[in-house]
């Protein structure tokens, strides 16, 4: 068993209005960042977990996302990285 650090990005699903993202996009526009087309604001969750392999750690965190960390009705998630704590 080794310890792995798995990072997950959770963002509002495409098609779900993200008013926070819109507000941030507007603010970026007023700062002069005219190139901004869309902003979505989500969560970044870091899980330290014991597993045999990095793949197993990623697999476990994926299951955690499906059952608790993300709500599939409103959010998409992706494993951003798997490393060592």
């Amino acid at each position: 068993m080794s310890r792995f650090r798995v990072s997950v990005h959770i963002v509002p699903r495409t098609g779900i209005l993200d008013p926070q993202g819109h507000a941030v996009a507007d603010a970026l526009h007023s700062l002069g960042f005219a190139q901004v087309r869309d902003v979505r604001v989500g969560r970044h969750v870091v899980v330290d977990a014991d597993a045999e392999t990095p793949e197993a750690a990623g697999h476990a965190v994926r299951a955690m996302c499906e059952r608790l960390l993300a709500n599939p009705v409103i959010e998409d998630f992706e494993i951003a990285s798997i490393g060592r704590p």
Partner: peptide, 11 residues
């Protein structure tokens, strides 16, 4: 119940 309740549109 189906669906979800998310941040108010006006924040």
């Amino acid at each position: 119940l189906p669906g979800a309740l998310v941040r108010n549109a006006g924040l």
